[in-house]
Amino acid sequence: VFAGLMLSFPSYAHIFYSNGGNQTPSVFIEQDTTKTNRIVLDVKGMTCAGCEASIEHKVGLLEGVKSVDAIYATSSTTIEYYPSKVNQSDIIDAINETGYKVIDDQKTSSTITTDNGNVSFYKVPLVCNAAPTIGCGSRAKPVLNDFENSESVDEAWLNRAGTVIAVVWSEPDFMTRRNLINQVFTKHKVNASELLMDGYAENLESFQAKSDWLKGSDVDKLSKEEAGIIADQILVSIKKKSSLSASDEAKLKDKITEKFYDFFLNFESMKDLGNPESYKARLSEIKKFGDDLIGSDNMPTVDELWSACSSAAKSCDHQGCSASCKIPKG
């Protein structure tokens, strides 16, 4: 019987830690306007919800700890605390006393990054197919908008490379944050993971400088850039069939860019964004414009234009990125 109780401990461990470490200690129920810091620790040995509860309970007892969020799935524990009342060493010691260990605590305590706890970074697969060096604005915009429309978020940003989303929080509660993150990324089928430790520090430095980050609808600039790259690739196909004057080339490029930029801003669903027929419909309009400008004999067919600028994006799952035209290697 005893062995059975011990084996099933994870299923009822929360009973012994019902208040958990996420409860603010009673000493801090009064309004406290002092600045808080946040640290994220890698913790070895957590395998269940009972492990999380044990750490949250132990650390939550420390005077000066505002909140604790242990996650066994990522082997991490996030602590928000008042540095004037408790230090990082005390927090690390408290975790180690539970039997779970902060990984390389000497190294961690000196390299840990702190801020006021209001920014989180998430690794995302939002790289543009047409231009692998930039993010896909049309894919990222709905995600950023959903974050910014939430009362829990002040701002949402995408780095220019399309690999990281930064969320600036107005909501201090970590469970509320986690629920919103799951809701938004699941809705838009974005496979995201939170960046911790070194990944957090690296992106925080870049984000604070606001170098190569775009906020909310500013990612439309990436869509405009993507449309221009597609236009350049289509022009290569047209010029293989006929010589173009500088004036005609400029008019064609403007028209192609306009058509695709409009599509990236106004597509009806993510299914349209990943549907080759959506792109062929724009190519059909571009061909008609080109027929009138330089003559139908000098314009490739719609299928030739599509073949020239895309391989139907076979490497794209239409979930992590758009299915826009891909530039052939070389």
Score class of each variant (00 low, 15 high):
residue 117 G to P: 06
residue 140 A to Q: 10
residue 327 I to E: 06
residue 240 K to L: 03
residue 255 K to N: 09
residue 297 D to P: 02
residue 63 E to I: 13
residue 268 E to V: 10
residue 245 S to H: 08
residue 170 S to M: 01
residue 56 E to P: 02
residue 295 G to F: 05
residue 20 G to N: 10
residue 139 R to I: 11
residue 236 V to P: 00
residue 168 V to M: 10
residue 139 R to C: 13
residue 52 E to T: 13
residue 89 S to N: 09
residue 29 I to T: 13
residue 165 I to T: 06
residue 291 D to C: 02
residue 283 L to H: 09
residue 22 N to R: 15
residue 36 T to W: 02
residue 278 S to L: 07
residue 299 M to A: 00
residue 137 G to D: 02
residue 1 V to L: 04
residue 290 G to F: 09
residue 77 T to Q: 04
residue 317 D to G: 04
residue 109 S to D: 02
residue 224 K to M: 03
residue 55 I to L: 09
residue 296 S to T: 11
residue 49 A to V: 07
residue 226 E to N: 14
residue 157 W to L: 06
residue 157 W to S: 12
residue 316 C to Q: 07
residue 133 T to A: 11
residue 29 I to L: 11
residue 173 D to Q: 08
residue 236 V to C: 00
residue 210 K to Q: 14
residue 117 G to M: 09
residue 76 S to K: 15
residue 93 D to T: 11
residue 27 V to E: 14
residue 118 N to H: 09
residue 18 S to F: 05
residue 262 D to C: 06
residue 261 Y to F: 15
residue 288 K to F: 06
residue 308 A to C: 05
residue 244 L to A: 08
residue 305 L to I: 01
residue 131 A to K: 06
residue 77 T to A: 12
residue 39 I to R: 13
residue 105 D to H: 10
residue 32 D to E: 10
residue 236 V to Q: 06
residue 8 S to K: 00
residue 54 S to G: 00
residue 93 D to M: 10
residue 247 S to D: 13
residue 250 A to R: 13
residue 28 F to V: 03
residue 278 S to A: 10
residue 323 A to L: 01
residue 219 V to A: 00
residue 263 F to S: 10
residue 123 K to R: 12
residue 25 P to W: 02
residue 293 L to Q: 05
residue 256 I to A: 15
residue 280 K to T: 05
residue 140 A to I: 13
residue 76 S to R: 15
residue 5 L to S: 03
residue 109 S to C: 07
residue 240 K to D: 10
residue 99 G to W: 12
residue 267 F to E: 07
residue 158 L to E: 10
residue 173 D to G: 03
residue 303 D to C: 08
residue 326 K to V: 11
residue 210 K to F: 08
residue 67 S to D: 12
residue 120 S to H: 13
residue 161 A to G: 15
residue 141 K to C: 06
residue 189 K to T: 01
residue 79 I to Y: 05
residue 8 S to P: 00
residue 69 D to N: 15
residue 242 S to L: 07
residue 156 A to H: 03
residue 2 F to V: 07
residue 164 V to D: 12
residue 179 N to S: 10
residue 311 S to M: 01
residue 301 T to I: 08
residue 179 N to Q: 13
residue 90 D to L: 08
residue 312 A to F: 10
residue 256 I to W: 11
residue 139 R to T: 14
residue 110 S to P: 05
residue 86 V to G: 06
residue 274 G to K: 05
residue 272 D to F: 07
residue 180 L to E: 05
residue 40 V to H: 14
residue 295 G to M: 04
residue 301 T to P: 03
residue 125 P to F: 02
residue 79 I to E: 04
residue 112 I to Y: 11
residue 38 R to V: 04
residue 188 H to T: 02
residue 27 V to P: 02
residue 75 S to F: 03
residue 281 A to L: 10
residue 100 Y to L: 14
residue 241 K to F: 03
residue 111 T to V: 06
residue 271 K to G: 00
residue 230 I to L: 12
residue 289 F to G: 06
residue 36 T to S: 04
